[in-house]
Computed example of a mutant assay.
Amino acid sequence: MAVFTAVTLDDLSQWIKQFPLGDALALQGISSGIDNSNFFLTTERGEFVLTIFENLGFEQLPFYVQLMRHLAERGIPVPAPVPNASGELVVTLHGKPAIIVSRLNGASQMDPQPVHCAEVGTMLARMHLAGRDFPMTQPNLRGLDWITATAPQVLPFLSEPEAALLRNEVTFQGDFAATQAYGALARGPVHADLFRNNVMFEGERLTGCFDFYFAGVDTWLFDVAVTVNDWCIDLATGELDEARVQALLAAYHAVRRFTAEEQTAWQAMLRAGALRFWLSRLYDFHLPRAAEMLTPHDPTHFERILRERIARPAHPLPV
């Protein structure tokens, strides 16, 4: 999240009337993240989040917004989109698509312990199962096609060792995606960005997750790998913390059992998750967009993680 499009309370004075929220009372830009313009919005009816989409168009947004509604209706703790008087969830603000969603209670847990990881594993498995009957489909827009197209754009900025790592891993993932083992992996809607700052806790109790704007249909195992690569690591080294890994995977497995095919693909998926975020951070670092508030991410963090996942055997999935 960031602020690329500035918004004031005066801008909202008439615009907000289409929603059943009363007047807008306060608005605060959210500086974390790098893709959309986000604001905490206080109205006469409570606390919400306003998002203006900088890259996604009206034709892409129904998947994300309807997925949130679908999950919320099935008891998954996610932000609920607020419809306007015409029943529309996505509307225009400053010429761009925008939505208002409910604001979750709690705070992000940036120093997770095994108990927090277990909560995340349980919720992620419940989310995957709840999405099985979601009728819409859209590929993961940061999947292999995007990786293949984006890697050449950042290669000129890299040292030779970095460039070699990127080229080799793109080739590895392309080859793996063509295998029968990959084709047999369970698939469905995935969050694809379930980092620590996208989950809320009150104490040890998970109260919700948000930021579904990288969601798409992909392998569920990729979603697990992305999550483990953030929640279960030593931030300084990228190494996996065995206690947190075991807690998250065991909790997930108790809700949705891992398959034999997923056992085989686990290490490759951990590498795929690391590659996706290393490449996106490389792109945002070397080819940035202007923003009023922007918090850049360090690409070397996921380079370390990728090198770790290549060098060390992954902790096996529960059986």
Results as ranks from 00 to 15, higher is better:
190 V>R: 01
190 V>G: 04
190 V>M: 02
191 H>R: 12
191 H>L: 07
191 H>T: 13
191 H>F: 12
192 A>H: 05
192 A>M: 13
193 D>S: 01
194 L>C: 08
194 L>W: 07
194 L>S: 06
195 F>S: 06
195 F>T: 07
195 F>L: 10
196 R>P: 12
196 R>A: 03
196 R>I: 00
197 N>H: 07
198 N>L: 13
198 N>V: 07
198 N>S: 12
199 V>E: 14
199 V>Y: 06
201 F>Q: 06
201 F>M: 07
202 E>C: 08
203 G>C: 14
203 G>R: 11
203 G>V: 14
203 G>S: 07
205 R>C: 13
205 R>N: 13
206 L>Q: 09
206 L>S: 05
207 T>F: 06
207 T>P: 09
207 T>N: 09
208 G>V: 10
208 G>T: 14
208 G>D: 04
208 G>L: 08
208 G>N: 13
208 G>Y: 12
209 C>H: 04
209 C>S: 09
210 F>A: 05
211 D>L: 11
211 D>A: 12
211 D>C: 13
212 F>Q: 08
212 F>P: 07
213 Y>H: 11
213 Y>I: 05
214 F>I: 05
214 F>S: 06
214 F>H: 12
214 F>N: 15
214 F>E: 13
215 A>Q: 07
215 A>P: 06
215 A>S: 15
215 A>F: 02
216 G>E: 11
216 G>Y: 10
216 G>R: 12
216 G>C: 14
217 V>G: 03
217 V>Q: 14
217 V>K: 07
217 V>I: 13
217 V>W: 00
218 D>S: 15
218 D>A: 13
219 T>H: 08
219 T>I: 03
219 T>E: 00
220 W>H: 15
220 W>R: 12
221 L>T: 03
221 L>G: 14
221 L>E: 05
222 F>E: 00
222 F>W: 01
223 D>E: 10
223 D>T: 04
223 D>L: 00
224 V>G: 05
224 V>T: 03
224 V>M: 12
225 A>H: 04
225 A>L: 01
225 A>R: 00
226 V>F: 01
227 T>L: 01
227 T>R: 02
228 V>F: 06
229 N>S: 07
229 N>L: 02
230 D>T: 10
230 D>A: 09
230 D>C: 05
231 W>H: 07
231 W>A: 08
232 C>W: 05
232 C>G: 08
232 C>P: 04
